Amino acid sequence: MRRLPIRPLAGLAAVGVLALTGCGTQTAAAPADPGTAAGERTIHARQVMRLTQVHEQTGMTLLEGPVFDEDGELLVVDVTAPAGEPKVLRVNIRKKTSEQVHTDTRGTYTSAQFSPYDGRLYLTDFSHGDIVSLAPDGGDPRTFFSGEVDGARMNPDDLAFDREGNLYVSDSRGMSEGEAKGRVVRIDRTGKDATVLADGLAAPNGISFDADHRGLWFSELTQNRISYLLLDGEGSVASRHTAVRVDGGIAQTDSIAVDADGNLYQGLHGRPAMAVYSKNGDRLATVEVPARAAEGLESATNVAITPGGTRAYMTVSGPDGGYLYAFDALARGIRQSNGG
């Protein structure tokens, strides 16, 4: 999930939101375009529609977790939506309309993705440490996972599924204290077995499998780096290394998506833009919103690329509201670029 600056959180404080994954930890205005490095290009995103306005009760709106359903409609979560207001929205992009899919009195949902195992929509509740699932139409809410992992509750931010439907979660535990207590956690598809794959992390945020499902990319918000976990085929870690150090200036690393060519789309908090890298760490492009619009926006948290196509939809938020922006991705969309 992405992060907006932490202001007084009004109604959100009541549910224990000290800091939001994917929402930023510091107030940051969008900086001037620093230009592009040799070999890097700028991709200009175009506004599709405004989905939300700043909520009076929470003083924020923060869109995250875009994911296409089987009917080609886009689902989006609003992390800071108060009780009773839409926390999951369904967007008809062609008609530029949206409707409420789910709300409740408790959840602070920071990501969304459909399971390949049971077809349900899974949401991470950052404030309460839960993983919640919904039927595809938004009904039948269930708590899939709750409780401690190795003696500590999670602050689950983003999630990814393997081909069998097991979950891999970025746990931003310790982020509000500024301590490197974060983890990557694997939860089996029954929700009964949770295992820590990596710990001692600095506010892990984005997480995605690579194009071949051989390993996991994950970002650490407060270190501006992307690491790679090579898996052994049995759900355990074979190796781990820092793969990319993101030159973000005042911006911080948020959610991650991966296209069919293995390129990484790294969302940024503190600037309404995304950085695009090859799997070998080359910075290929920067996706930006128009300069005038950027003045009222503070983050580009995540992106969904149309499955089998190249049209990408980026969630962008700030004092001007929550928006969808569109651009042409470098390669076609796959499961790893659809939700999480």
Score class of each variant (00 low, 15 high):
P5M: 06
I6A: 08
P8N: 14
A10T: 07
G11L: 07
L12M: 12
A13D: 12
V17A: 07
Q26I: 13
Q26C: 11
Q26L: 14
A38Q: 02
A38M: 01
G39M: 01
T42E: 04
T42C: 02
A45I: 00
R46P: 01
Q47E: 12
V54D: 09
E56S: 12
T58N: 10
T61Y: 06
L62F: 08
L63E: 00
E70D: 14
L74F: 10
V76T: 09
V77Q: 10
D78T: 10
T80W: 11
A81R: 04
P86S: 02
K87Q: 15
R94F: 06
R94A: 15
T97N: 12
Q100W: 10
Q100P: 15
D104Y: 11
T108K: 02
S111M: 01
D118R: 12
R120D: 12
S127P: 00
G129E: 11
S133D: 10
P136V: 09
D137H: 05
T143N: 03
V149D: 00
D157N: 15
D158I: 02
A160E: 13
F161Y: 14
Y168D: 05
V169E: 07
R173P: 00
S176Y: 03
K181C: 06
R183E: 09
V185R: 14
I187L: 12
R189C: 02
D193C: 00
L197N: 04
A198R: 09
P204A: 06
N205T: 06
I207E: 03
D212V: 06
W217D: 01
W217S: 02
E220N: 11
E220F: 11
T222I: 14
T222Q: 14
L230H: 10
L230G: 11
S236M: 04
A238S: 05
A238M: 03
V244K: 13
Q252F: 08
A260M: 06
Y265G: 13
Q266T: 08
H269S: 09
G270V: 04
R271H: 03
M274Q: 07
V276A: 09
Y277G: 12
K279N: 14
D282C: 04
D282V: 08
R283Q: 06
R292N: 13
A293S: 15
G296K: 05
S299C: 10
A300I: 01
N302M: 02
N302E: 04
V303H: 01
G309E: 14
R311S: 14
Y313A: 05
T315W: 06
S317V: 04
S317P: 00
G318F: 04
D320W: 05
Y323H: 12
A326F: 04
A326L: 08
R332E: 07
S337L: 05
G340Q: 04
